[in-house]
């Protein structure tokens, strides 16, 4: 009985730590006051509405969306064949490939960002947008490989052979049989990658230049000059967006099976 009580207490504390900050942000964003504060002063939707009026937020939102979508797609285009090869064939140095592919998870994002800035953007004059795109692709790649690999493990190679014997080419069998069979995993990887990329700060920090900013960086910059609750409102909106995506994914895909 006491252990049950104890576990309930611990569970409550953990949930509080996880959800607490989110609730504080939501509360702060509904404040009627002029500065970011908790508890909120009064209740109003004005800051939520103001978010949509700030020009730079709109631009950086589009930037973040583009990066998250294109970066994740690129990571999948690279990651799916990599997962396939690792699952199907005895790849020479397969373990090394696996380690290298997951390197961006291990290496702190701030170092990745700095490295890209120092060795690509400055000396080679890389376009900032392109560098950001590459950084986000690399960042999402480990998730893509991991999640897609997990769904490929259960895929037997004989269904490809069956497809070939029914007239498919090897590539045809991959496109017609392998990809559709792992589409749940691919979608799960996309969502995970999208959310990771969208919320990414450290890598993007070094790679933001005039006119090119991701939304989280823009929020940081905004906060340095303007200490009003609109940032909290934006954070809450973004959190709701993420929750919505994951909820839908869980509902229709059983997202948690893949992650």
């Amino acid at each position: 009985m006491t252990s049950r009580l104890l576990s309930t207490i611990i569970l409550t504390i953990v949930m509080l730590f996880l959800i607490g900050p989110f609730l504080i942000i939501v509360a702060a964003s509904l404040s009627a006051g002029d500065t970011l504060a908790f508890p909120p002063q009064g209740l109003s939707f004005k800051w939520v509405l103001k978010v949509f009026e700030i020009e730079s937020f709109r631009a950086s939102f589009v930037m973040s969306m583009m990066l998250a979508i294109l970066g994740t797609l690129a990571a999948l285009v690279i990651g799916i064949p990599v997962s396939y090869a690792l699952a199907r064939y005895k790849v020479p140095f397969g373990e090394t490939v696996r380690t290298i592919v997951s390197a961006p998870i291990i290496v702190p994002g701030i170092i990745v960002g700095l490295a890209l800035l120092r060795y690509l953007v400055i000396p080679l004059g890389f376009n900032i947008g392109l560098a950001l795109f590459m950084a986000h692709t690399a960042l999402v790649l480990p998730y893509a490989v991991r999640v897609v690999s997990a769904s490929m493990v259960n895929l037997r190679s004989d269904i490809e052979e069956a497809a070939v014997l029914l007239g498919c080419s090897r590539l045809g069998a991959f496109l017609r049989v392998v990809l559709p069979s792992i589409r749940g995993g691919i979608l799960a990887a996309f969502i995970l990658g999208f959310v990771t990329s969208f919320n990414q700060v450290p890598v993007s920090l070094f790679l933001s230049g005039p006119g090119v900013r991701t939304l989280p960086i823009d929020m940081l910059a905004y906060l340095e000059t303007t200490y009003d609750p609109s940032v909290a409102a934006l954070s809450a909106l973004l959190a709701f967006m993420s929750i919505g995506i994951v909820f839908l994914a869980e509902r229709f895909l059983g997202f948690s099976r893949y992650v």
Binding site: D158, I159, E161, A162, V164, L165, L166, G167, R183
Partner: peptide, 20 residues
Amino acid sequence: PANKRAVGLVFQSYALFPHL
């Protein structure tokens, strides 16, 4: 090549396409 042979194979595990 296997896809041009007019040879059929019923696999031990049946190898049906799960998504179809």
